[in-house]
Design a protein around this nucleic acid. Structure first.
Lengths: 216, 216
DNA sequence: CGGGACTTTGACACCTCTCAACTCTCGTGG
DNA sequence: CCACGAGAGTTGAGAGGTGTCAAAGTCCCG
């Protein structure tokens, strides 16, 4: 359904009486891999990045989370990825204690289940993205997903602001910064997109971008 | 936790009074993408393969399911992947109706939630597998996972039988049959493994295989 | 205005994909 | 029982793409 790997339920978590709100600065860490998992977080504003590391030191960006997404799924007692803010962000924290034990909240359970099922779909979508050969196709696909979910209309053109550096995109697509940069240049030269500064991507020709995404 | 993408709960689904058992021949289809989702299946014996197709026709193997795994997660009303048996198999079918609606079974809900959370971990593990560069590393990693979860001791050597053809391994690792074959040959020549026929892989030197998996 | 981080571009080696031929395996039928 | 044939697997050669290393360019913020 959604492009990224965190879920975007139809609304926010309604059950589970709230919680503490927390604000994060850009670059701030929400939790780290192997941290004890004390809360489940619902992103209210900003963009988060979820990463895991390979033993070799290689980094994999598992997901980018946008408002409405939930991070910190309670699989076991420890987090299995790092979570950092790419922009200033606010999250609502739900106590893990509300999930298990005697005082468990059944409503929260239901929402968590739905959120987890949506996350599975999102992860499979990420897999399908990586299934493509060719960096052009992956990047084109990635941009199309972002356009559909986070695009805004500016001067009549669909536009997205990339809150993440090229290195994060590279690690999300399982490639390198240089290849991402080259692929961007190719998309630009093909007339499919235009770059407005480093962060802003303007969609000029959706069909062409879709064609590139589907070609390789 | 588990290597493959379907979950392996500690036991089988205990809640939700059973269900119909169904047997599958090798090659038989359990469900197809876009089929109406009527049941949730729990694999009792055999091995299943979950695949999805890219618009281009390219195929991605999303997961291999082993006994104890659950397939057919109810994300939406339609299946999002094809599911076929690689070997003769038996599954226990749980009615989807037991999940939603008034007669919903809360116990089944809980188990489904736990299973879904485990599936998320498995999918992330698949992602981390693909994060590696180099086909040798991916294949070595894949074999190590299989050894840990499905390996049996034969004549003092850890051994696995690969129920899937090379093409399935290729599509699971996002590469080609030829590359998988060449990578296998390299692992063989390095002394890490031995092939006993086409299906059987014998682990000769775990450390070497782990080293190859961690190198690239 | 200056400095540092990020991005882009270039050159080159290596790996992987593609296409093709060959081998192997195994089930089938003569 | 053997021969055959089809499918699967392996191996080879060549082209193209990508990772790596290096350098130049750009942007942003102090």
């Amino acid at each position: 359904m959604t492009a990224m790997h965190a879920i975007r339920p139809h609304g926010t978590l309604r059950a589970g009486r709230p919680t503490a709100l927390r604000t994060l600065d850009a670059g701030e860490t929400l939790f780290r891999e192997a941290d004890a998992m004390t809360h489940l977080f619902e992103l209210r504003s900003g963009v988060l990045r979820l990463t895991r590391f390979l033993e070799t030191g290689r980094r994999q960006v598992v997901a980018f989370a946008y408002p409405g997404d939930i991070v910190g799924f309670p699989a076991g007692r420890l987090h299995h990825s790092d979570c950092e803010a790419l922009t200033p962000a606010t999250v609502a924290a739900h106590r893990r204690a509300a999930l298990d034990g005697p005082g468990a909240d059944p409503g929260l359970h239901d929402e968590l289940r739905e959120a987890a099922l949506a996350e599975i779909v999102a992860l499979q979508d990420h897999l399908m993205l990586l299934a493509r050969i060719g960096a052009r196709g992956k990047l084109a696909s990635f941009l199309l997903h972002l356009m559909e979910n986070q695009g805004t209309l500016r001067d009549g053109y669909m536009t997205i602001d990339l809150p993440m550096p090229r290195a994060d995109i590279a690690d999300y697509l399982c490639t390198t910064v240089e290849t991402v940069s080259r692929a961007l240049t190719q998309l630009r030269r093909s007339g499919a997109i235009r770059l407005d500064g480093i962060q802003r991507v303007v969609l000029l020709d959706r069909d062409r971008l879709a064609q590139i995404a589907g070609s390789d």
